[in-house]
Design a protein around this nucleic acid. Structure first.
Length: 356
DNA sequence: AAACAGTGCAACCGCTCTGAC
DNA sequence: TGTCAGAGCGGTTGCACTGTT
């Protein structure tokens, strides 16, 4: 026995709603409440299916509906929530006041999804799609060897590394627990002292590398070669006392500690290395230095300030704590910013040997 | 200026799930 | 336990608008 249709479709109107129909529906619901959607059209004098009325009300006529473009903060929240909740649009909408599940779904499919794909991020898993990154030329380079692979990992944007770390273990976890964990991560991140470089634990490097290169090439094999590792890294140091691999920042100016632990001379490092390493274009650096939101980006804490907008904030910022304000007025700027954050540019003709 | 292609969005369809009865 | 209504979801359609040729 099949289900009876939600309404008799004969003679019922379809397609765009007229202002008159909207008025009838709105007035009826204001007077009587939504109630029974099957009987509502008849009682309200509408030649519409009850489901059509319900959708029109919930997606458009509800007084608390917010119209207009999604703000950057909303977009950030959608990405964050989607990474935890998946395609549960109603659950996402419940956390975005004034937005409907249908609206969010449409916006996701027409904007965010495409943007993530362009950025090389899988919109389903939110994991970086390394298969789409333009690594083919690099990986096919005759200069590629084990030490270069280590360098390649360390040249990745640390935010991208943290994104991968944040996302990869998340796929099978309880969304609520995961959301809570992400909030805690964010609080921990925000509590970092100003100017403090992000610290990546050696096992994190190992996890990332083991997920991205053949299993027979892991960092453990490099860790067994401390001399070559230390010598090759140049602008990094392996601090054996606290077992952390600290990424130096700000044009690779060395801290005293770094100077004490590195063995190679990095005075020969190209001056544009930060751009290369963090994927920040010259124009963007100019923009950022002119922008009060990034007033100290060019000073001594480039990485730390890049956390003004980090993928962690995308993933873990709760709505009760508004995401950081990014003065990106256009969609292109947003995409540019996000893309630059993920991208690590390899200038044409770059010779690794120049700064090894 | 006109034709065409691409894009964004509201709305719909068909199906499943859930809870009330 | 079965039925029904409401809700939710993924996918699709149709139209208006915009950009390109």
């Amino acid at each position: 026995m099949g289900r009876t249709p939600c309404c008799d479709k004969n003679g019922l109107k379809k397609g765009p709603w007229t202002p008159e129909e909207d008025t009838k529906l709105t007035q009826y619901i204001q007077m009587h409440g939504p109630g029974n959607w099957r009987t509502l059209p008849k009682n309200a004098g509408l030649q519409r299916c009850g489901k059509s009325c319900r959708l029109r009300w919930t997606n458009y006529l509800r007084p608390d509906i917010k119209r207009g473009r999604f703000s950057f903060e909303e977009e950030e929240a959608i990405i964050q929530l989607h990474s935890v909740l998946g395609n549960k649009w109603s659950a996402i909408a419940a956390r975005l006041p004034g937005r409907t599940d249908n609206e969010i779904k449409n916006y996701w499919n027409t904007h965010i999804r495409k943007r993530l794909l362009r950025m090389g991020i899988d919109p389903v898993t939110h994991a970086p799609r390394l298969d789409l990154l333009d690594l083919s030329s690099l990986l096919s380079s005759p200069q590629l060897n084990l030490s270069n692979l280590v360098r390649l990992q360390t040249l990745l944007n640390p935010e991208a590394l943290r994104l991968a770390l944040s996302i990869l273990p998340s796929q099978n976890e309880n969304p609520d627990i995961l959301l809570q964990k992400k909030l805690q991560e964010n609080q921990l991140l925000n509590s970092q002292l100003p100017g403090q470089a992000p610290v990546i634990q050696p096992n994190q490097f190992e996890n990332i590398i083991s997920q991205q290169i053949p299993s027979n090439l892991t960092t453990s094999s490099f860790q067994n070669q401390p001399q070559s590792l230390q010598g090759d890294l140049g602008h990094y140091s392996i601090d054996s006392t606290n077992s952390t691999c600290q990424i130096f920042q700000n044009n690779f100016t060395r801290t005293a500690n770094a100077a004490a632990t590195t063995t190679t001379s990095d005075q020969s490092l190209p001056t544009d290395l930060p751009r290369f390493c963090y994927g920040i274009s010259d124009q963007m650096r100019t923009d950022l230095s002119d922008n009060s939101s990034f007033q100290s980006f060019n000073s001594s804490s480039s990485i730390n300030n890049s956390q003004n907008f980090s993928f962690d904030s995308v993933l873990s910022t709760p709505l009760s704590s508004p995401p950081p304000v990014i003065n990106c007025s256009t969609e292109d700027e947003r995409e540019s910013f996000c893309t630059n954050l993920m991208r690590f540019e390899i200038p044409e003709g770059l010779n690794f040997e120049d700064f090894m």
